[in-house]
Nucleic acid binder design. Structure first.
Lengths: 114, 114
DNA sequence: CTTTAATATTCCTTGACACGTATATACGTA
DNA sequence: TACGTATATACGTGTCAAGGAATATTAAAG
């Protein structure tokens, strides 16, 4: 389990991360909100913790987990190389649709979305 | 292989995507630049194609593969929910560093949070 | 000090998938 | 036609990670 991409490939782990974005949560709270068995939650949290996605503080018997930004920023950094590419694509599509708008009604151009 | 996250979990597939961001490439070109066996390249391209990450056009015996933006934008959309969070973190860090920077060398530092 | 609550860990099984090797298909050309 | 090139697919294999069930650990409460 080396890369951050493998970590977020697991749907339950993504769900946990999404849950933690609002505020820190205990294991039991995560368990209840996501309807997952407790050992499953603990095991995924362990993976997330060791990969640096979350950290925990002890509160009596509870562990409160919260998000850490760095690994997700790493994903963001990898995605950055594609943003230039797809914004160029959107521009090309818009130019294309603009050209389609003018000509005769025999073309298949459909309605524009609001 | 349902989610886009599982697709990009594989390092060779990420390498292929990064290669294609500059321009379209044939299977053989990918094979040579990434030093991967040809069947491996073809198999990964199949996965990427079926997931909508790439598309191919036929040029004689060659297939020219190029990037499609939508699936990567989907990843970007998922990441969006965390940007608010980590920019808040960066802001907090910057405020902290600002407080550390401004005072004259004779002043003492604030206590770190726990 | 026994019990209950919260979380972590262990063991086992199962399935997915990445790889290598070999072969198949398709196209162009002598 | 036969042949070389480019790409795709089939098959067998090993690895690894996720899930379930049971148990261990730790802390608080009684």
């Amino acid at each position: 389990m080396e890369s951050v991409f493998e970590i977020i490939a697991e749907p339950n782990r993504r769900a946990i991360l999404s849950l933690l974005v609002s505020s820190e949560q205990s294991v039991g709270e995560i368990e209840r909100q996501l309807h997952m068995p407790q050992p499953t939650v603990s095991k995924h949290l362990r993976v997330l913790r060791e990969a640096g996605f979350v950290e925990a503080t002890v509160d009596a018997q509870r562990r409160l987990y919260r998000l850490k930004p760095e690994p997700l920023q790493e994903v963001d950094a990898w995605l950055a190389q594609f943003r230039r590419f797809w914004s160029a694509h959107v521009d090309a599509l818009e130019r294309y649709l603009d050209r389609m708008d003018q000509p005769s009604p025999t073309k298949k151009r459909k309605k524009k979305k609001e």
